[in-house]
Every structure is written in C-alpha cells, then in structure tokens.
C-alpha cells in the first residue's frame, strides 16, 4: 500500500521535477516567473502527438510499439522533433514578447503579467487547433507488472522515471562541467558582470529558452503518456511546478528535481489520506510553508 503511494508520488514527482528544472533555469536567468511555462509543456505534448501521427502515417504501420512499452519508434522520433519545435516556440515567444519588454527595461511584474497573457494565448491556440477533448498517444492497454514490496507499475511508468532522472543529470552536468553551463550560472548571478567578463548574455538567454523548451516538451509528453493530453494540462501543472522551484531554491537544478519529487510524493500522500480533491492544495501548502519557513528553499537563493 505505502509502496504504491511512493511509486505514484515518484512518477508525478519526476514529471513535475522535469518541468520545474526548465522553469528554474528561465526564472534564474531571465529574472521573472514565466507563467507561460505550463503552455510549453502542453504544446510539447501536442507537437509530439501530431508528429507521431504524421510519422506513423508516412511509415505505414511498420513502427510497432517497442515491447514491453506502449511507446513506438514513431513517438520517440516525434518526441525528439517536438523538443526542437518547442524550443523554437519558446524562442519565438521571447522574440515577440519578452525581448521587447527587456529592451524597454520593463519591471519584473510587467513581464510576469505579459507571460500570463502569453499563457492564455498559447492555450487558446491549442484549443482552437485540437479542441479541448482529451487525446492519447496510444489506446493500447498496459498491464501493470508486480514489483517487489507489493507495488504494481506499468513498463511505461518505469521507463519515464528513468528518463526523467537521466535528463536531470544531463542538465546538471551541463551546468557544472561546460563553458555554456558556467556562463549560464554567471549570468544568473550578475548579468552586468557577465558582460564585463566577455559573456554574450543574449546568447545565454537563447540557450536557456532552448533548454527550457526542450525539457518542457519532455515533461509534457511524459504527462501525456501517463494521463492524457489536454490544452489545460500544462496550466494545471503550473502550481506544482512553482512549488517545486521554490522548494528547491530558485536556480538550483538538483533542487528543482528534488522539489518536484517531494511535491509529487506529498500529492500522492494527500490523495490517499485526505482525498483526491485536495491534490491541488498540496502545492499551495508547500509554497506557503517554504516562503514562511525557508525562503531560500533547499539549495537556492530567495524567491
């Protein structure tokens, strides 16, 4: 019983963590809370869907699911392409909206409000193109396998937990071991000094949108695989994402992942013990508690 809660929590948490890593990076470098980040998840999920359908149609039925997973080669290819397209979408939104505001020296609250607008516009576009009816990558039913400790999990679920961890470790290594990563951390701490030491901050901003968009697409596609694809899926995840970012400490990648896992586990626990209708309240409780008790989060700087 408790093992099953743990698994549910880990799954939701890995997904939240993955989305939160992208959010914490854009938050720390662009210095505003991007409320349109959830829509990058939704767009990523829908782009994966459309591309996998397109690839499936072009290749005929030759791309069967990779046993034992429900995931097909078509969806994997589509996912990779969708990551690139979501990154392009993030860059486009920045170019059309946020970059203009930055150039004008707009205050953070103006940029946050603009991101609200972007969020609504992007979500409405999805409803326009895809309707609000839920969609699925695969109608195939998966049988949960019994695992030690009386836990049952589908192969997809285990694959996604693994994938999330690989992605987060990759981002962490990028930040700590590469020139790009060090430059990103430098810009996040002090953009003016970063320029003085020769870092092209505009290039770093582009890199952050690309990484954030690709990670959002991964998280969105994961969420679509585990539950369903809806235009509101990303928006509904926004609160848990921010809870994870703030709990982990803004700018901290390991913090965002750990925060995501903790929020996911708390949610699963709340669903079991209090009731499913309280799931959304958990993220609120976490944000409030962190801001009151430890505003710097687990590893980062103040929110």
């Amino acid at each position: 019983m408790s093992g099953q809660i743990l698994l549910e929590g880990l799954l939701a948490g890995a997904m939240i963590g993955l989305g939160a890593v992208g959010l914490t990076l854009t938050y720390s470098i662009l210095r505003f809370a991007n409320f349109a980040h959830g829509e990058l998840l939704s767009w990523g999920a829908y782009l994966s869907l459309s591309l996998s359908l397109a690839i499936g149609a072009v290749s005929g039925a030759s791309l069967a699911p990779l046993d034992p997973f429900s995931v097909s080669v078509a969806l994997i290819l589509a996912g990779l392409l969708a990551m690139a397209l979501t990154a392009v979408l993030a860059l486009a939104v920045d170019h059309l909206l946020f970059a203009r505001l930055r150039r004008r020296g707009a205050t953070a609250i103006i940029v946050v409000m603009a991101s609200f607008g972007a969020s609504m516009a992007l979500r409405s576009l999805l409803e326009f193109f895809y309707t609000s009816k839920p969609a699925y990558y695969s109608r195939e039913l998966q049988i949960a396998m019994p695992l030690p400790g009386g836990i049952r999990a589908t192969p997809d679920q285990l694959l996604l937990i693994g994938l999330a961890f690989v992605a987060v470790i990759a981002v962490h290594l990028l930040l700590t071991r590469t020139d790009l990563g060090r430059a990103m951390r430098a810009v996040s701490e002090n953009p003016a000094l970063a320029g003085v030491v020769g870092i092209d901050t505009a290039k770093i901003v582009r890199a952050v949108w690309i990484i954030g968009g690709a990670l959002a697409c991964t998280a969105g596609t994961m969420s679509g695989l585990l539950v369903q694809i809806r235009p509101y899926m990303g928006f509904d995840l926004l609160l848990p994402l921010f809870a994870a970012v703030i709990l982990g400490g803004i700018g901290s990648v390991p913090g965002a992942m750990l925060g995501g896992l903790l929020v996911g586990l708390c949610e699963a626990l709340a669903v079991q013990t209090i009731g499913a209708e309280w799931r959304a309240a958990v993220a609120f409780a976490v944000i409030t508690a962190v801001l009151v008790l430890r505003p710097t989060g687990l590893f980062g700087r103040a929110a």
């Binding site: 430059a183 701490e189 000094l193 030491v197």
Partner: peptide, 18 residues
C-alpha cells in the same frame, strides 16, 4: 560585485577564459 560569488575561484577564471 566584481566576482561571481556562487562560482568557485577556478570557475570565475574559467568563465573569463572562454
């Protein structure tokens, strides 16, 4: 604020060396 406090000494030199 002429150094990056959240980077190590070596990393401060590395970002400039880029």
């Amino acid at each position: 604020e002429n150094i990056f406090a959240t980077l190590t000494i070596r990393e401060n030199l590395q970002v400039a060396a880029a």
